[in-house]
Amino acid sequence: MVVLLAALAGAQVVAAQLGGAPDQPIGFTHLTHATTLQIDCTFCHRNVTKGSTASVPAVQQCMFCHAVVTGQTPLTQQEIAKVRDAFQNQLPIDWVRVHRVPDHVRFIHEAHYTGLRARNPGISTQNLCATCHGDVASTIKVGQVRQLRMGDCVACHRANNAPTDCTTCHK
């Protein structure tokens, strides 16, 4: 038994990585897009108002602007070139996932988006999304800012008078 314990010590199950902001294949900044350019979150994450996932935009959508916008500094030019190359070569971009809830959870972005809109009339989309995702609009690299564990979910559901039946979230 002792041997077993010693041999296995120190290992950790990989869980949701609170605070971690992983490196991404392209140096995309929400700061530029969401704050400087004031592009609405739902313009790129277009499924957020419609379905379960918020969805990352297709490369084609990046090309709406980047077919023309090539960047002003060497760094941005280099990063934007990656997007343009990907589109030219018909290659998808593999981003690193930041948020992931366990498999037994059914999370629907649309319900949260609609619910928060109804409870906070006139709220900006950025502030609405910030409820769970933090101030993404002013970050350069996105990381997870909320636990997004069950206690966290239930506390928020209670506070907002949302249903707390097991089957609301659990599959």
Binding site: V56, A58, V59, Q60, A86, D94, W95, R97, R100
Partner: peptide, 12 residues
Amino acid sequence: HEWKLESPVLLP
């Protein structure tokens, strides 16, 4: 592989 989030090339 589930920690990858793929941007498809074309819009659905």
